[in-house]
Design a binder for these strands. Structure first.
Lengths: 130, 130
DNA sequence: ATGTATGGATTACAAATGTAGTATTTTATT
DNA sequence: AATAAAATACTACATTTGTAATCCATACAT
C-alpha cells in the first residue's frame, strides 16, 4: 500500500485530463484534443506523453502499430494526492482553514451551497451515529 | 490592480511561512526556525531568502548591519493566488468539485463541520437578500 | 518501387528548483 | 590593529519542466 504516485506537472495534467476523458487514445488523438485548448506543437504533446509513460502515470499499449495511451491512476486518486500535498504546503496541513477560505469565494451558486451543506449534514450524521 | 504575484516554490513556501509567523526577521532567525522543521543547511535557506527577495515576494531592510526580511504579501493573498491556480489545474476550474472532494475527507471534526456549515448558511443568506 | 507523410525514438536547450559551496566583506573579539 | 566569526555575495550543479526539433522507420499513395 501507500503506492506513492509520481508527481504530475502542470503541462502533464492537461494531458491527463484528456486521457481521463477518454482512453485509450493514440497520440494524435490526444494531440488534436489539446490543439483546441492549447497552442502546443504536436511534438510537445508527444514529449509529455512519453514523460508520463516513463513516470508510470500512464500505460502504453504497443500491440498495434500505433500506440495507445491510458491512465494508470484514476483522476480521483491523482486529485487526492495533489490536493493533500497542496494543503500541506499552503495551509500548513489544516484542511479546515482551506475550506473556510474557499467557501468565502464568490463563485459558488445557491445550488452548490445546498449540495455542500447536504454533504456536511451527512457527514456529521454519520459521525454522530458512529 | 491585478498585481500578479510571482510564483512561490515548495521550498520557498516554508520560508514564507516562517516570515508570516513573525517578521521582520534576520536570516539567522529564519534559519533557526527552519532547522527545527527541515534539514536544510543554512546556505540553502539563505539562497531561498535571496530568491524570494529577487522575486519581490519579500523585502529586505538593509539599514542595520544585519539585514532583515519581511513579506511583501499577506499569507492570505498568496494562498488565494496559489489556490486559484491549483483549482484550475487540478479541478478544471470548478471550485465546487474540489470542495466536495475535500469535505469527504475524514479529518474534519464535528466542530469544524459546524463552523463550515455556518459559513455556508451565512453565504446563502447573503445571496438571498441581495 | 519510390517518394511522402506519419509515428516513434532520441536529442536539445533554457528557466526554475533543490541544495548547497566558495569568496569576500563586515563585525566582533582580544 | 589583527584575527576570528558571521553575514553577504556570487557561483555551482543536478533535476524537473516547458517547449520543441531532428532523425529514423514504416505505411500509404502513386
Amino acid at each position: 500500500m501507500s503506492n506513492k504516485l509520481p508527481s504530475i506537472s502542470d503541462a502533464e495534467w492537461e494531458v491527463m485530463n484528456v486521457l481521463w476523458e477518454k482512453s485509450p487514445q493514440t497520440a494524435s488523438g490526444v494531440i488534436s484534443s489539446l490543439q483546441e485548448q492549447t497552442d502546443w506543437k504536436p511534438k510537445t504533446v508527444r514529449t509529455l506523453l512519453d514523460r508520463l509513460a516513463q513516470k508510470k502515470v500512464i500505460g502504453v499499449n504497443k500491440d498495434q502499430k500505433v500506440y495507445t495511451f491510458f491512465p494508470l491512476y484514476s483522476r480521483d486518486e491523482c486529485q487526492q494526492a495533489e490536493a493533500k500535498s497542496f494543503i500541506k504546503r499552503i495551509y500548513g496541513g489544516t484542511l479546515k482553514s482551506m475550506l473556510v477560505q474557499f467557501m468565502q469565494e464568490d463563485s459558488l451558486s445557491e445550488e452548490d451551497i445546498k449540495e455542500l451543506r447536504s454533504i456536511l449534514d451527512e457527514k456529521s450524521e454519520k459521525k454522530r451515529t458512529k
